[in-house]
Amino acid sequence: MQRSLTFNIFRHNPQDPASVPHMDTYRLDETDSMTLFIALHRLREEQDPSLKFDFCCRAGVCGSCAMVINGRPGLACHTKTRDLPDTITLLPLPVFKLVGDLAVDTGTWFRAMYQRTESWIHTRAEFDPAAQEARMENEVANAIYELDRCIECGCCVAACGTANLRPDFLAPAGFIRVARFAADPRDERTDADFYEIIGSDEGIFGCMGLLACEDVCPKHLPLQNQLGYLRRKMGLTVLKKLLPFGG
């Protein structure tokens, strides 16, 4: 039995001085294998070409299409309408600056995060094009890859209580980035160096432990574990600083 779906969609165009934030309602007949990617494009092409939203890979790997779907941040491209009730409410992610309707500016937020965490390998070694590559255990490579799978969709940031309260919070996406480099033997930074980045209330001590971040992560990253790990590691770093015989 084909359903008729009702979409309640947040509308606001910051570039239009006359625009007032509001909700618009659309109707669409459901088809087999319909995802929000298909539904939103049909709405734009058939009903309202002014609708603003972001998609890119539409295959769950680029992180463009995160939005709040019936109250929960998630990727629109792999959300199937048949898993949702007849009425679907779509809102833009909070925390990020609104570009228009469901589109938000994640790019600026994440670039600031790269600078804060210095999201690159810190090494004094120079690359030698004539030399064989430095060896690495495959297990280590896999462990780094697991922490490097973040697609920067922003779901965890949007779901984070602290990030919603304080704009300078590094947020789970920032912590997992630090964890990725802390796990990489090629990066010469020490625990003390990482402490400088995350050892504050804007860093890991700002986390209220609500752990919604891991619930909403579309890549099922171990955000909770890594947070715990970093906290223990940073706790030890503080301890070492305080103790006269510490490291």
Partner: peptide, 11 residues
């Protein structure tokens, strides 16, 4: 190899 040096976790 250069990419490995820059941080790619090749298997």
């Amino acid at each position: 190899r250069r990419l490995a040096h820059w941080g790619v976790p090749w298997n």
